[in-house]
Design a protein around this nucleic acid. Structure first.
Length: 632
RNA sequence: GGUCCCGUAGCUCAGCUGGAUAGAGCAACUGCCUUCUAAGCAGUAGGUCUUUGGUUCGAAUCCAAACGGGAUCACCA
């Protein structure tokens, strides 16, 4: 409709304004809710052209449009805004089009280029936590939204399964796990612990002993005993201690941290962990066996958690397999002159002309750093999927700089697809008590949180739900759908880019802008339709109420909303739209008779509207990874 | 310190490609279930859109600075 009006205005600009007009002068906006109208044209841009008041300009354009666009029934000018009112027929046609269109709002599958979405990408040394939940829900939802918008999508992750952090868990398990009566160390099988939890426990265990050993070393130094340490260490320590004199508390804290780092670097534990990493890289059979064993425990645990979260992946990449991939690319880039080598043998890229720094891409000993493998993995993915057009990396905003550098390097290496790589940079999740810190035990565990949320949903649903006729299994499933739906909605309704506050109490709320509120509206419509008897949604000629037009208006926006959510990679756009739609519908539901409407034609039309709302809710929730129960 | 992000009601968030009187939810207070699921609806109250300048017919929205908060600046990942 906007296009139609725009075209008519452009075609008749000479007659209307006595001059041609630029297309961008024609600005539409949604009519304010408190004034009558279905679409608003901003007339300010034409005032200069017409050399008259905004009101006169509006009247002139309004009269012209009313005479030339059959769907426009009337118009009114208020404060330089031309409010157009569309005819009853127009809205009936809109409703019928929405009803008849398969998957209204979605684009033809495969009509847009193939995209890869990376999300989750956890370390395999500890269980998933609240931060991973935001990451996973976002990545999964963005994938679904891109599919809805016509893209083919490959969901992926790169599993951080190697490195010093993994060795720490392994070492701690070997050193500190108690033996049972059979002489076995702790395993998921003999403890009943979930694999990722068990490995995580030993990561914490490592840290505990690590800190203890560092503390003892510092105490030894403070007594002036440097018998087991190098002269450099002694000098460094003495200098730090000197530097503390006369400083304020904050500065002293900073220096103490540096002393602690110094001590940590001297611990036997870290030395052993590093040694283990070297052995791992040399494929030492014993270390490799330990590594595959403990990783397999973690994967079993992760699988349970992913299933609970309702996310999945099409293709997995393992860092242990990809970490060397980038080295060849670096050598190639070195030949191309993209990179340069320093005297010590390390390889760098100079990004100062792009406003960034120099960045290392290969260590002096020839080993790969983090970004090296990311270069390799990206290129590898595009060769694995020849039709791949772009990639979305769902990674927290603490890595903004990393991705800026990565994309720039790929571009400089000559990969044109680098322009289609996007860092979906999401903000941290804060708790009311502050930041999550694993060391301080303030991390919210993903499994525990989901269990709690489902438990609460169960209690509330037993209290107020409509559970009659449901089996125990169906009830359990419903509690899960409501609990998890609430949690997902809570994490997805906020703009991904923004840091957000996670309030445990609010996350299980059922009222207001929440998942269960939306699910409830869906269930209520399902109940209406189930009780309505035989349905007949043929196009009819009825006089629509303003409440009904409001709903049709919002339904008609759906294609735009999906497109916006897809191009901005923002599930929040879907969440907020769905919430608005549900509010509009609930207002209608409470003030208008539906099933109890005596006029059959009007009743059917209201059910038709209700049914389209239910379908839209169901589709939207699915885009967010949330189920829409029929009864609750 | 350099770079980047953020600052809207008591709290959590929408609105930000400039447009009308800045919106929701939670919390507080009032009403509405003999009628389709009250996990609902209607209403009251709550604002210096951090501040100051600039651009503009028009600024929460764009630009600059200040203040406040955060992230990042490893031959870690």
């Amino acid at each position: 409709m906007e296009e139609k009006i725009k075209k008519i205005v452009l075609d008749n600009a000479l007659e209307l304004f006595g001059a041609g007009v630029e297309e961008n002068l024609i600005q539409f906006q949604q009519t304010r809710k408190d004034v009558e109208g279905d679409l608003t044209l901003v007339v300010f841009p034409f005032v200069k052209l017409l050399k008259c008041s905004p009101i006169q300009a509006g009247e002139k354009i309004g009269a012209f449009l009313k005479n030339n666009v059959s769907e426009i029934e009337k118009y009114a000018v208020i404060n330089g805004f031309l409010n157009l009112v569309f005819s009853n027929d127009y809205w009936l046609n809109q409703l019928d089009t929405i009803y008849k269109t398969q998957n209204f709002g979605f684009s033809q599958p495969g009509s847009k280029p193939m995209m890869m979405v990376e999300y989750s990408s956890p370390n395999t040394n500890k269980p998933l936590h609240l931060g991973h939940l935001r990451n996973n829900f976002l990545g999964y939802s963005v994938s679904e939204i891109l599919k809805a918008n016509g893209h083919e999508v490959v969901k992926t992750q790169v599993i951080n399964d190697r490195g010093i952090h993994i060795c720490k868990s392994m070492l701690a398990w070997e050193k500190f796990s108690p033996l049972n009566e059979k002489g076995e160390r702790e395993t998921p099988a003999n403890t009943g612990l979930k694999g990722d939890k068990l490995v995580g426990k030993y990561y914490v265990e490592f840290d505990k002993h690590f800190n203890q050993e560092a503390k003892e070393i510092i105490e030894q130094w403070q007594l002036g005993d440097f018998s087991n340490f190098s002269n450099d260490t002694k000098i460094a320590f003495v200098n730090f201690e000197k530097a503390k004199e006369g400083k304020d508390e904050k500065a002293i804290q900073g220096i103490d941290d540096k002393i602690k780092d110094l001590a940590k670097n001297q611990t036997a534990l870290l030395r052993d962990a590093k040694e283990m990493l070297v052995k791992w890289e040399a494929r030492d059979p014993q270390v490799y066996l330990l590594w595959t064993t403990m990783n397999s425990w973690v994967y079993e645990g992760f699988e349970v958690t992913y299933k609970k979260m309702g996310v999945d992946f099409d293709k997995l990449y393992y860092e242990s397999e990809t970490f060397l991939l980038g080295k060849d690319q670096v050598i190639k880039g070195l030949e191309q002159g993209v990179f340069f080598r320093k005297d010590d043998g390390s390889v760098w890229i100079d990004l100062t002309s792009d406003g960034l720094d120099e960045k290392i891409v290969l260590r002096s000993d020839g080993t790969a750093v983090y970004i090296t493998q990311d270069i390799g993995t990206a290129i590898d993915r595009f060769s694995d999927f020849p039709n791949l057009n772009g990639m979305v990396y769902t990674v927290g905003n603490e890595q903004d700089y990393h991705f800026k550098v990565l994309f720039l390097i790929l571009k400089k290496l000559g990969y044109t697809w680098a322009e289609n790589c996007f860092h979906l940079s999401y903000g941290m999740v804060d708790l009311p008590t502050g930041k999550m810190k694993s060391r301080e035990g303030t991390v919210v565990d993903a499994d525990d949180l989901i269990d709690e949320v489902v438990e609460t949903a169960a209690e509330m649903t037993k209290e107020r739900g409509h559970l009659e006729g449901m089996t125990e299994d169906e009830r359990e499933k419903l509690y899960y759908q409501i609990g998890l739906g609430g949690l997902k909605y809570y994490l997805l309704k906020v703009d991904p880019k923004k840091r957000m506050m996670f309030n445990p109490e609010e996350s299980i709320d059922l009222t207001g802008n929440t998942g269960p509120f939306i699910q409830y509206t869906h269930a209520r419509i399902c109940s209406l339709i189930a009780k309505a008897g035989e349905l007949n949604f043929k196009a009819t000629n009825v006089e629509l109420l303003s409440e009904e037009i409001e709903i049709i208006k919002q339904l008609a926006l759906y294609p735009e909303i999906i497109n916006e959510a897809a191009t901005t990679f923002s599930p929040a756009v879907i969440a907020n739209y769905t919430y608005e739609l549900v509010k509009t519908y609930n207002h209608f539901y409470q003030s208008v008779k539906i099933n109890i409407e005596p006029n059959e034609t009007i009743k059917m039309n209201r059910l038709k509207i209700s049914s389209e709302v239910a379908k839209t809710i169901e589709k939207s929730l699915k885009l967010l990874g949330i189920f829409a129960p029929q009864k609750m």
